[in-house]
Design a binder for these strands. Structure first.
Lengths: 242, 242
DNA sequence: TCAGTAGCGTTACGACTATTAACAAACACG
DNA sequence: CGTGTTTGTTAATAGTCGTAACGCTACTGA
């Protein structure tokens, strides 16, 4: 067994390309229909293949779905990280703004992928407990926490506008800190989750069209105020460069 | 034509009951599978009928979906309104808290219905531009704005912690005010949307399981702080009765 | 050079779904 | 009682997912 497969990079490359094309076709189809759903038959048609051929690359629809979810996490994480790194690291406030804007922008641009990873879990898809998607999720969300860490390290993170932190949350924060190099104080931990929820709420409502009755400029202004408020409340410094 | 149908309340009652049963069965199925999807065949099976029989009550799957969406809006609106009215109307702060808790509670209890109305628009369903769902949506969301109106009328609404309101938003608020008896100042309008977004973000993330790594007590404490912060920022008075 | 083989794509098939059409029973009402 | 509406059934069409069995192609190794 295993006669070849030692030196067949050509085949592997073609295979990877086909896999990418399948995923892209599925995505395109989801974008066109505006939903989180696809038919193997449609993908095959668009690629000028017959449906059973796809089973050479994905065991079933769920496996393709899992791959798309993992990719979506990666893409969101990448988009956010890129936006953050495009801002000088001595202006944490501006970095925060950039992160928030990237999150919103990605959600608007890719509402289907957004729903895929942050909406109601999709039909037939059960997140593998320790699989690649969970890991990807952690990576994507850590973009936000890393920003708070930077702020702490630079000593620019003010006290969040919070009442006393509930002991249960403090304990939860402590548990989370075990895996981190720099410790996050409980009130920062809470502020972080507050920030994420606040940011996510706007992004989700807008991405799904529930703000469509407000015109573009109004939504932009609204989001700006929304995020600045969240930053203030979380103790994030104001951006130096507006 | 129209021989009977003038006095056949018996038939109509049975028909309404069947319609309700269909919707309930669909909901149950969605709850069991944890997704926003159902098969006509499954519903029919559960009701011990044959699939084509359902077409006597709904023209197709989309029509049933539309009905479910309208019902979900009604249910959310009802739940929120009930929670609000259960609190004495001289304690606006407590009413606000009750409304927020009801929103969250409903989202957690009925994640599928929540996704149905506030998630990514569902496959094959196009919201009728002027149909019953739009109206239902307005009614449900007006629960929140009516609370702000009450606060204004009683003069207990403090200034929201906002920078200057963008003229575009002011214009948008003015446009919205045309349909209202009492005028809502622009900054309140903005505070309202900020509140909704903030509240919705937490509710959605939690309902879809993205806070599952925090235990129940922690989430409760988190939500409490989250909402109190939102209230403070929006200028809502603190609740008298905690 | 040439047989062997792994990978890819095809057609053929079974089980299932949404939806329509044609038909039968139950019911309301003159 | 007879007539027509309502509600359910079975039969049939078309499209889905997924499996099985079959070629074709291209690379491998003697």
């Amino acid at each position: 067994m295993s006669t070849s497969s030692r030196s067949a990079p050509r085949r592997e490359k073609a295979r990877a390309a086909t896999i990418d094309e399948i995923k892209l076709t599925a995505l395109t189809h989801m974008r066109e229909t505006g939903t989180v759903d696809f038919r193997f038959a449609d993908i095959a048609r668009a690629m000028e293949m017959t449906p059973p051929a796809l089973y050479r690359y994905f065991a079933d629809r769920d496996e393709l779905l899992s791959a798309l979810i993992a990719d979506a996490y990666d893409d969101l994480g990448r988009a956010v990280a890129e936006a953050r790194d495009a801002v000088p690291d001595d202006d944490i406030g501006a970095r925060f703004l950039a992160v928030a804007r990237a999150y919103r922008h990605w959600a608007r641009q890719e509402p289907q992928q957004f729903a895929l990873i942050l909406g109601l879990p999709v039909a037939g898809y059960a997140a593998p407990a320790d699989g690649p998607t969970t890991e990807a999720a952690q990576r994507a969300m850590s973009q936000l926490s890393s920003l708070f860490l930077q702020a702490i390290e630079r000593g620019v993170l003010g006290p969040p506008r919070l009442r006393d932190v509930h002991p249960v949350i403090a304990e939860c924060a402590a548990q989370k800190n075990q895996h981190l190099a720099t410790a996050i104080p409980p009130e920062t931990f809470q502020a972080m989750l507050h920030t994420w929820s606040t940011l996510h709420g706007f992004a989700a409502l807008e991405a799904y069209g529930h703000f469509n009755w407000i015109d573009e400029a109004g939504r932009d202004a609204l989001f700006d105020g929304h995020v600045r408020l969240a930053a203030e409340v979380a103790g994030m410094p104001a951006p130096k460069a507006p």
